[in-house]
């Protein structure tokens, strides 16, 4: 029986890799079954199950909250998302990040000039260096 390599990964971990005879996933345009020697294909996945059929006939299920499925002659790659993604959800996350920044800026005491910050940093670094020197002296 012909087989194909399959990798399922998310940004946070490797979920599955091995040799399979069939991969079934929920593409954006509908359910997909990928058998070995499928034509090259790339699609986005909808949240749902990815099912792989192993060589010995066993099946394994993985849940993905979306992602991308790529089919190459020798390999099927699933790049799974770790979070539910939707345009408006992303939008909300972005505006939250912005709001966070605005909140920070709202209660900023007074805008320092870069030069001033540089001076403060230099001071901190000098202190660190002084500590370093002290540490060395102590060793002797």
């Amino acid at each position: 029986m012909s087989t194909i390599r399959c990798d399922i990964v998310s940004a946070e971990e490797e979920i599955f890799h091995g040799t399979v005879t069939l991969v079934v996933a929920t593409g954006e345009m509908g359910e997909l079954g990928i058998a070995p020697r499928h034509a090259p294909l790339i699609t986005r996945l909808k949240p749902g199950q990815v099912r792989v059929k192993l060589e010995n006939g066993d099946e394994q299920f993985f849940y993905v909250s979306g992602g991308i499925l790529e089919v190459q002659p020798q390999v099927v790659t699933v790049l799974a998302d770790t979070a539910i993604r939707a345009k408006d959800l992303d939008e909300a996350a972005a505006s939250k990040a912005k709001a966070e920044a605005e909140k920070l800026l709202a209660n900023r005491t007074d805008a320092m000039e870069i030069a001033e910050a540089q001076a403060q940093l230099a001071q901190a670094v000098a202190q660190l260096q002084a500590l370093e020197r002290l540490r060395k002296n102590l060793k002797h």
């Binding site: 946070e12 979070a83 972005a94 990040a97 920044a101 900023r108 870069i114 910050a117």
Partner: peptide
């Protein structure tokens, strides 16, 4: 926050287990 740059976004407290 304290220097004069354009801060347009921020996220804090990712913790020990940052998530995408």
């Amino acid at each position: 926050r304290r220097i004069k740059v354009n801060l347009v976004g921020s996220v804090t407290h990712l913790g020990e287990n940052p998530q995408v």
